[in-house]
Write a protein that binds this DNA or RNA. Sequence first.
RNA 1: GCCGCCCUAGCUCAGUGGUAGAGCACACCCUUGGUAAGGGUGAGGUCGUGGGUUCAAAUCCCAUGGGCGGCUCCA
Length: 688
Amino acid sequence: MPLTVTLPDGSTQSHPQGATAHTVAAAIGEGLAKAAIGARVNGDLVDVNLPLPGDCTVALVTAPRQNKKGISKWRDEAHEADALMLLRHSAAHVMAEAIERLFPDTLLAYGPALSTGFYYDLSLDTPISTTDFERIEDEIQKIAAEDRPFTRYALEPVAGMARLMAEDNKYKIDNAQKAIAKGAAELSWYATGEQDKNWEDLCQGPHVPRTGLLGAVKVMSVASSHWHGDVTSDRFQRVYGTAFFTPADLDVHLENLEQAKARDHRVIGRSLGLFEIDEMVGQGLVLWKPKGAVVRDQLQKFISEHLERQGYSQVFTPHIGKLDLYRTSGHFPYYADSQYPPLVERDHLKKLSDEGCSCAELTASMSDGTIEGYMLKPMNCPHHIRIFASDKHSYRDLPVRLAEFGTVYRWEQSGELGGMTRVRGFTQDDAHLFVTPEQLAAEVLGCIELVKIVFKTLGMNDYRVRVGLRDPDSSKFVGEASDWDAAENACIAAAESLDVPFSKEPGEAAFYGPKIDFVVKDVIGREWQLGTVQVDYQLPQRFDLSYTGSDNAEHRPIMIHRAPFGSMERFIGCLIEHFNGSFPLWLSPEQVRVLPISDKFNDYATTVLDALKDQGLRCSMDTSSNRVNGKIKVAQEDKVPYMLVVGGKDADAGTVSVRHRTDGDRGAVPLADFVAAAVKERDERELG
RNA sequence: GCCGCCCUAGCUCAGUGGUAGAGCACACCCUUGGUAAGGGUGAGGUCGUGGGUUCAAAUCCCAUGGGCGGCUCCA
C-alpha cells in the first residue's frame, strides 16, 4: 500500500513503502534531492535516508546556499536550527572518531549537539589540552575530506545489547539500557562510511548524509564532567566544539564571540570603573566603585519609590545573627556547606580550648551544628520574621510587607565564582510578606507588578519565567495539598499576567512552597536566575508565627519571599551587558560632560557646568590639553550620554553644541533648552 | 571542589634559558583647537607568590594564590 506524504504547502505525494525523505525531495527536483540533508517527519527531525513510517507530513531540511562571501543563507531560524543541529551532531561523531584515532584508549560516552555547537563526553586518562586541538581538527578535516556517508543500521534490543556487551563500553551499554527502558524498539548505530568497515558509534541520530558537509569544525574547549552528572561517579573529559557549513560562517561566529567578550560586564565594569573584585579583599566580594555605586543607588531609589507606593515598610537588619536563629529557620547546620563558617565567641572558644577541644573536634561541632556562635546571614528572612514576631498581629494588620536591600553571604564553590553574576556577598532587593490565605493571590500578583514596571522601564523584554510546582509523583513537599493548589494557582495566574513566555515546571518548587523565577541570558548565552517570588508555609510554622483572626482565634500567616531582581550584583551585572555599558541618562554615572574647545572658554564652560549642577545633573568638564576630537574620543569611551562642546560661538550666543553618544552632533541649542530636555529625560527615566 | 587554559607597568598585551618591551592611561613641556586621539619628554615592573633545576629562569619543574571556560552546586 502506497504512502501518502503531505508537504508543508499542503500538497500531497504518493510513494511506495520504503520511501524516504530523499525520495520525496527527488520527486520534487534534482537540486532539492542534492540539497536535502534531513527532514522533519511528523515534526521529528530525522535522517534524509530513513524510511518514512507511513502516511506522514514531511518538511525537508536543506543544506544552505551561500552568498558571495561564503556566508550561508537561511529560509528562517527554524531552518537554520534544524540544519545546524544535524550538522553539529554529525560533527560530534566525526570529532569522536578523530579523538579515537589520536588517543586509542578513549572510551566514548555521550555526544550531543547544542544550540551553539556540540560536545563529546569521553573517558581518557591522557588529559586533552588546548595544544591537541589543532591535531584533532586536522583529523576531522581528513574525515570530512573523504566525504564518507553516514550509514545507519539498527538491531533489535537483544541483539544490540549482545553486541554492546562484546564491545565492553559501560557508558554505551548504559545509554542503550536507558533507551530500552524508555521503550526504544531498536538500537541504532551510525558508521561514518560502511557498516562494520568504518568507524561507528551507538547513536539515536539523526545525522547529515555525508561527512563532506562539515565545512568548518572547530574544537573550542575542554572541561571535566561527570557520568550522569554525578560528582562521585566517573569523570569525563568534555570536549566542546562547533561546526558550520562554511568557514565563513565559522568566522562570523568567532567574530560574534569576540564582540560578546567586549560586551561582558567584567570588561565594561573595569573600563568604566564601575566595580572591582580584589584578590586581597576576597573571591566573590564586590567593591562598588563610585561610578558603579551611582548606578546601584539610582536603581535602588527607583525600586524604593515603587515599594513605598505598594505599601511596603522598609527595615534594616544586621549582617549576622545567632546560630539559634538559623537552627530554627533550618539553615544551620543543614546548609552549612554553602555558608561561611560560624563566628564563635571568644569566651566559648576559650572554654572549648580549656576543655582540650582539638581543631578536628571544633570542625566537627561546626558541621554537626553543636557549636555556639553567630553566622553571617545567608538569607534575610529569619531577621524579618523576628520583626514580624515582635508585635502581636491582628488580621487587620495584614498583609505586613517588610522590605530591605539586605546583604547576605554564601559560600559558593570557588570554581563557580565570576564577575558580578556569581558572588559570595550580595545585596538582595528582598522583602517578606506575611499574608492571610485570602490575600495570597493578590499579593503574589503585586510582586509581579513591580517586576513588570522595572523590566519595562529598563527595556528588558528578553527574559523568561519559570513557575516551579510541587513534585506530583512524591511526597517531597510539606503541607496540605489544598494549600499547594491555592498557592500554585496564584503563581500561575501571576505568571500569566506578565505577557512573556513562562513554563510550568513540576518538581521545581521549593519543598516549602511553589515559586516564580525570572531568568535572563548573559552575552555568552548563559542563563541567570534574577528574581524569585516564593510562597512559604514552612517558616511561619517553624517560628510559630500567628495573627488573630476575626474569629478571635490564632491563625498561621503565609509568607511570601520575593526578590524581584535577585541581587543588586547579579542584576546590575546583567544590566551592564543589556545596555552594553551605555546606561540610560537616569542611571548613567556621568550624565553630561562639558568639552571646552580650548581653555580660553573655560569660564563659559564653567557657567554651563554650574547650570547643569543646579538641576542635579551629574556632570564634569574636560580641561585636559586634548583637542576637541580627543575629548570626544575619551567621552565616547566613557559612554557619557551627552557631550556639550562649547567655544566662542556658544559663549556669544548662550548655546551649547550638543553631541549625543549614539546620535552624534545634534547642533547648537540654547543652554536652558538643553537643561530642560535633559531633566525631563532623566526624571521620566527615558530609555534614550 | 573537579578538568583544561591563563597570570609580565594602572589597563591591554609582546617577549622559547643569557642586561625587562610596546600602546593606552599618568606627570611635565609645546600646541589654543569646533565633533572619535596634535607633538615631545618623563616616570612607572623583585615578570602573582614560595620552593626547585641551572653558571644563568619572565622562560623549565613542583607547590600555592587569583582569573577564564566548562562540570557539579545554587536554601
